[in-house]
Design a protein around this nucleic acid. Structure first.
Lengths: 256, 256
DNA sequence: CGGCGCTTTGACCGTAATCAAGACTAGTGG
DNA sequence: CCACTAGTCTTGATTACGGTCAAAGCGCCG
């Protein structure tokens, strides 16, 4: 256990730039600087922003953004998975998006959001005041563009999922969910057709809320996929996909 | 008939600005200048853009953007309704968005889209080359911001609809669809609780593809809503909603 | 051990899909 | 003008997929 943690720390160090003395310390090992919105910022801008950032850790199920409440901060997700949910007055719930590190979290240009955000797993975030980011956007078109790209990515993903919700069978939905997790949980994964082993970031109830199903149906379809040899289930949360290709064919889509 | 058309023309004229001699002629009566992306442009910029614009009319069912094909132009929708669809290899289809005038149509910053766009009704558009708009975005942060706002609006709508697709019953889905059309088809509508009469821009098969249902179920739920007195059906396409409030309660949401 | 949260499995039921027929509308041509 | 056709929509009978209700298994922690 301690050994594997040490190994990960070493990998982080290797990701540091050769010459980065002008990068703020708190930003040096941050993935958001490479693939997130902070990639648009100059060392100087990073320094300005980093003076106002606060890093938080929150446990699974913590509420991060409440629906219809004013938002004061934006965040970058450093680790963990965040679920975006919508709730009906009678309690029915739908997860409308999952966000992984190093995604940007928040609804730009609006005082409050119509969705709420909740930690699906333990989550680490880097937060900063809304006003500071909005000031920086005014001065850096590059940053505005990055934020726009993030919005467009979320829009594409939302529409992909609308097809899943509206037109796929329960079996295809569960396969699509596993495929989504398998290809998003580990940013370093390559799409070659080896076995993939990962931990599900959602419990059954969340999976059901994401797929528009009940927990019983999710459970039944998982055992069906297991019996069909498409997945192996080590424990409730630990899943192995021997062949991504076979899983994809269970999703009933070519381009996904 | 001729009378009502004349009345509408008069309304358009009144919408013109008092001093607009420097606004290009083709843009003067255009709604996109008031509520669409062109609202971000100065008279000079409008002039530049209008030199490259082409206005088109296309009949219902015309394909406007093919999935996975390179896109050369963006468009503003001047009139009519456009449906954005996704298709599965086996023919199952899902409409993932509807766009009304004066919405912007196109996927910024990407060579091709994963969805296709089709005219739901007869449609009029104002198109311009991708490259021209992208050049203008570089010089006008205001325009980039408008485009971002449009993307965010589509994202909010997509997520609203995910809740409908994943968690609502057939009856609630059809009611939600009628509510969406009633509140979007006529930009000049006010939400006061009078009777609203409108023409459905989609045929039953399209409504089914939008709601993740079959045409038979859509038809049955429409007659059920009619028998419940929530709607009146004059003809296949012509619907009256006596009380928007009653329709909303049939959608099972408070905030929509 | 006992209690609690999560998951699985089984039996039964209900909603929406499927299959099938018929009504209505609009367009075409005799 | 009407017959004919094709497309669209409605209605009915039956089926099946996924939901509901219920019970039991499992892992975890006090």
């Amino acid at each position: 256990m301690a050994k594997s943690e040490q190994r990960r720390a070493t990998a982080d160090v290797q990701r540091l730039d050769i010459h980065n003395s002008d990068i703020p310390v708190v930003c040096r090992a941050c993935e958001a600087r490479h693939r997130g919105v902070c990639g648009a910022l100059s060392p100087d801008e990073l320094k300005t922003l980093s003076r106002t950032t606060v890093k938080h850790k929150m446990p699974a199920d913590a509420e991060m953004i409440a629906s219809d409440e004013p938002i004061e901060t934006y965040s970058n997700i450093m680790a963990g998975v965040v679920k975006l949910t919508k709730l009906m007055p009678d309690g029915r719930q739908q997860i409308v998006g999952l966000q992984f590190a190093p995604d940007f979290l928040g609804r730009p240009f609006r005082a409050s959001s119509t969705i709420s955000a909740e930690a699906a797993t333990d989550v680490a975030v880097c937060s900063f005041p809304k006003t500071v980011l909005e000031e920086m956007v005014k001065r850096s078109p590059e940053l505005g563009h990055k934020l726009h790209e993030q919005s467009l990515k979320e829009l594409d993903e939302a529409r992909d999922w609308m097809l899943t919700l509206g037109r796929k069978t329960a079996a295809e939905k569960v396969a699509s969910f596993l495929h989504l997790i398998a290809t998003h949980i580990d940013p370093e994964i390559d799409p070659s057709d080896g076995a993939i082993r990962f931990e599900l970031p959602l419990k059954r109830a969340d999976i059901a809320d994401f797929l528009g199903l009940t927990i019983e149906t999710v459970s039944r379809q998982l055992t069906k996929l297991r019996k069909a040899g498409i997945i192996e289930i080590e424990s409730n949360r630990l899943v192995t996909v021997p062949s991504l290709r076979r899983l994809e064919s269970a999703c009933a889509v070519d381009s996904d």
